[in-house]
Design a protein around this nucleic acid. Structure first.
Length: 888
DNA sequence: TCCGATCCGTAC
DNA sequence: GACGTACGGATCGGAA
């Protein structure tokens, strides 16, 4: 039988190795976790691969050691521990604790001394010792029973391997005494490296013998050095010699790995958001799960109603036949009042052998007053979806008090997803049943209505339960991050307003769109045949690949920039080619018309709702990095306006008969916010005076009177003004303006000379990002900038530009959200029937009955302009017309 | 047949 | 590589 095996892990050495091996890893709050993760993985690998009988992790102690006492320069060349590693050390110690492993640390000594002591004792007791380290200093303790293991290089060092390098393990210190160790700042003897040292020790046996027989050294220079630095060599020997007689017990019970403390590990891994590790070591998945029951009988339903009526608030979730809440049908509802208990109320399951379900109309009628009661708090994940489903089922949702998705969006801006599954994994360490596991995927996908009720309960009731638990975890996070007010006063009410807007939708003139499509179609055909003719044969113009082949191979036109897979055919390249080549001009026209037709005039009419006759976009409130909304299905925030052809599409956005479209947009909102936030007096004054801001900027940058500013100068100034908001570079500006980089740099320098506070503001933003890994907006919203410390210059540059852009763009998002709420409140208070239909970042669009026009004009302008009080005026331009184009 | 990657282009 | 934020259509190639 082989001897029991003891593994001694050089914790300190592995912490550094883990830190550098895994460069980027942090949790959603921006806390660095790379070393923790790397260390844990390494630890688990050793435990699994080696299955030690005994194990200990050994750490360096903080503060001075006896070595620094005898030689203050010892390790003095070491750089300080990286800033983001420092806070990971206590976490790593918690990992060791959590796995119930022995840990050693000894004031005044290094990990190596402890290892040497333990190894010697263990070896004496007949244990087989493996020292897990990447450090060669430990080679001196190798013997027949003690070896080193470098898991990262997967290399083991026994007496043979050490002998090869140093002669034998007991010669290691002799060699190092002469050669020194640059990484520990051990001096050794000048002019003698490891090779020479080994030769000398081979010859003389040890340091003292060598020093006593220096006359036998032939090389005068070497002899002189050895004479002169003899004491330094002796000192070096003391420094590298490990202490192996510390007063430590070798207690086999302590060294036996225990059962992991799952609770402690769960807490730790949750904090670090290590999903894989959580899955493996979380304390008890059952603790998250709960008892779920189906509501199938009258009695069950009455009981549920009683609980809901008695509760101050409840959590609910809807199940439907699909993801289109205004078209798909309600299949069931789940509820949770307290964590760990949930009900599923099936209403529309439809499969062979389905049990009778409660009468849908009756049930909904009983539930309606609860959902509509603003005093009865409701919690729901992505509540807008459920509110729309309820609306479609004839119910109104009021009294929304919490939405984990929105809370997470604010409190954990760095999180990859604010979806329920991801949050459950990261915040609860729990993996809920996936929708796919219930309904299948691909062609096997069935509707939720076809899912057996028994199975549906486990999925649906779980969702309500998890949502409630997430709310409990996220609510304090909102407080901690100072965003509770933003959540309660802005995001949550906004979600209800967005629900209203989505329900309202916007009217589209389908015939008009069809007419445009026809017109575009004809032009496209003509363009296509022209292009084919010039190309000398047919090909798919819409295929960048084929187009590239035609332009650059068949026609041998000059190539521009590259894409990852070939030569670019984008608008910039084509514009250049268009100077000399008709085909490029045709392609440009083709491209823009194909875009308009495919993306807008063909696509939009298809999305008209059968009943309302309108388009109901989806406003997403938790996707952007800055707090802006986004719009999808369809995206109504990128309807063309810049080109004449494109603008015509807006003529198809029309009001109901008797109404007009009213559009109100903030003028220069981001630049104004920048001036305010940077407290840039000059820029603020320019806005206060009400003059043309780009003209004024041009006057400043080019040093002329405003009336002397040429169109060219104004155009440049405009580009700079925009560039500043985006974190400009000379390269970018040069490209934008088609000028030299040097000239662009001069413009930028001129700009910052005239507006010095802007520069200071940018620096402040980057500093804030570096300190917190996020930046903040006027309302205290946090925007994550996780890669601000990246070692990769390009990535870091990107993060720095974000750090500048986010506060400005995010504050603009804050502002218009406030404005939306204020305007809607006024509309409601004045009992107007005007309806807010669209938000496009700095613009609000309303459908206004003719009789309310004048009131709305002033109301909207007033509320928008006073939504925030800044050091400079906010200006809103209001337009009205019989379609969106005219209103603009 | 579906899905994802790629390229391109629309908005603010 | 190089000026921020989104969404989506068409193509294309690989997987089911």
């Amino acid at each position: 039988m082989s001897s029991p095996r003891l593994y001694l892990i050089d914790g300190s050495s592995y912490i550094y190795r883990a830190y550098y091996a895994i460069r980027h890893l942090s949790n959603s709050r921006g806390m660095a976790t790379n070393a923790v993760y790397g260390f844990t993985s390494m630890l688990l690998k050793i435990i699994r691969d080696e299955q030690p009988d005994y194990l200990a992790v050994v750490f360096d102690s903080r503060g001075p050691t006896f070595r620094t006492e005898i030689y203050p320069e010892y390790k003095a060349n070491r750089a300080a521990m990286p800033e983001d590693l420092v806070p990971q050390i206590p976490l790593i110690k918690r990992v060791v604790q959590g796995f119930r492993l022995a840990a050693f640390e000894e004031p005044g000594y290094e990990a190596d001394d402890i290892i040497a002591t333990l190894a010697r004792k263990a070896s004496a007791e007949g244990l087989e010792v493996t020292v897990v380290t990447g450090d060669k200093d430990l080679m001196q303790i190798v013997d027949e029973r003690v070896s080193l293991l470098d898991t990262m290089k997967d290399k083991r060092f026994g007496p043979a391997e050490v002998g090869e390098r140093f002669g034998s393990p007991d010669k290691v210190v002799e060699v190092q005494a002469l050669a020194g160790d640059s990484s520990d700042n051990v001096p050794g003897v000048p002019g003698i490296g490891e090779k020479t040292a080994k030769l000398l020790i081979d010859q003389f046996g040890d340091l003292e013998s060598l020093l006593s027989r220096l006359d036998q050294i032939r090389q005068p220079k070497r002899r002189a050095n050895l004479e002169q630095f003899a004491d330094q060599a002796r000192l070096s020997r003391r420094l590298v010699t490990l202490v192996d007689d510390l007063p430590l017990e070798l207690d086999r019970e302590v060294l036996t790995p225990g059962e992991p403390d799952r609770e402690q590990l769960t807490e730790l891994f949750r904090e670090c958001e290590f999903q894989r590790l959580l899955d493996e070591f979380s304390s008890d998945p059952q603790a998250v799960a709960g008892s779920y029951r189906a509501v199938l009988s009258e009695a069950d339903f009455e009981q549920l109603l009683q609980r809901l009526e008695a509760a101050e608030r409840f959590c609910f979730d809807t199940e439907t036949t699909g993801l289109d809440p205004l078209r798909d049908e309600l299949v069931g509802l789940s509820f949770a009042v307290e964590a760990g208990q949930a009900w599923y109320l099936p209403l529309g399951h439809y499969y062979l052998g389905a049990p009778p379900q409660l009468d849908r109309e009756l049930v909904l009628k009983r539930l309606a007053p609860l959902f509509a009661d603003p005093e009865k708090g409701k919690i729901a994940q992505n509540a807008k979806f459920d509110a729309l489903v309820l609306h479609h089922a004839g119910l109104t949702l009021e009294g929304l008090v919490f939405d984990p998705m929105l809370a997470s969006y604010l409190a954990r801006p760095a999180a990859k997803s604010h979806g329920m599954d991801a949050m459950a994994a990261e915040l609860l360490g729990y993996r809920p049943i996936k929708f796919e596991e219930v309904c299948g995927k691909g062609k096997n996908r069935i509707s939720f209505a076809e899912v057996e009720i028994e199975r549906a309960v486990t999925y649906a009731a779980e969702d309500a339960n998890i949502t409630l638990r997430l709310a409990e975890i996220l609510a304090p996070l909102l407080e901690e991050t100072g965003q509770e007010k933003l959540f309660r006063e802005v995001e949550l009410p906004l979600e209800q307003l967005l629900t209203r807007m989505e329900i309202t939708g916007v009217r589209i003139d389908a015939d008009f769109m069809a007419g445009l499509s026809r017109e575009f179609s004809d032009k496209l055909q003509a363009l296509e045949s022209g292009i084919h003719q010039l190309a000398g044969g047919p090909f798919n113009v819409a295929s960048p690949k084929q187009l590239g082949e035609v332009l650059f191979e068949r026609l041998k036109l000059p190539k521009g920039k590259k894409t990852r897979t070939g030569w670019s055919t984008d608008v910039e390249v084509l514009n250049k080619l268009a100077e000399d080549h008709e085909i490029a001009r045709l392609i440009l026209d083709y491209r823009s018309l194909a875009k308009l037709k495919g993306t807008y005039t063909d696509a939009l009419p298809k999305l008209i709702h059968e009943e309302s006759g309108r388009i109901h976009t989806s406003f997403n409130q938790a996707v952007t990095a800055t707090g802006r909304l986004s719009s999808s299905d369809p995206n109504l925030q990128n309807i063309p306006i810049r080109s004449e052809e494109g603008r015509r599409i807006r003529e198809g956005f029309i009001p109901e008969p008797g109404c007009l479209m009213l559009s109100a947009d903030y003028s220069q909102v981001e630049l104004r916010l920048l001036a305010h936030m940077a407290e840039e007096t000059t820029l603020k004054e320019h806005f206060c005076s009400g003059e043309d801001i780009h003209r004024r900027t041009a006057a400043e940058v080019f040093g002329v009177f405003p009336e002397m500013v040429s169109d060219e100068m104004r155009r440049s100034a405009k580009a700079i003004n925009f560039g500043v908001i985006y974190g400009i570079s000379a390269f970018g500006l040069a490209k934008q303006l088609g000028i030299g980089r040097k000239e662009a740099q001069e413009y930028i320098d001129g700009y910052f000379a005239r507006y010095p506070k802007i520069r200071a503001f940018m620096d402040k933003c980057i500093a804030e990002a570096k300190e917190h890994k996020y930046v903040t907006t006027l309302l205290g919203r946090r925007c994550a900038v996780p890669e601000i410390d990246s070692k990769n210059g390009a990535i870091r540059g990107y993060a720095e530009r974000n750090a500048i852009n986010y506060p400005v763009q995010g504050s603009a998002a804050d502002l218009i959200k406030l404005a939306m709420l204020r305007v809607q409140r006024r509309i409601d208070a004045e009992e107007l029937s005007s309806r807010m239909v669209l938000q496009v970042h700095d613009e609000l669009v309303f459908e206004v009955p003719e009789g309310e026009l004048e009131e709305m004009r002033t109301l909207v302008k007033e509320e928008m302009e006073t939504a925030l009080e800044l050091d400079l005026p906010l200006v809103v331009d209001v337009g009205v017309g019989k379609n969106w184009r005219e209103a603009h």
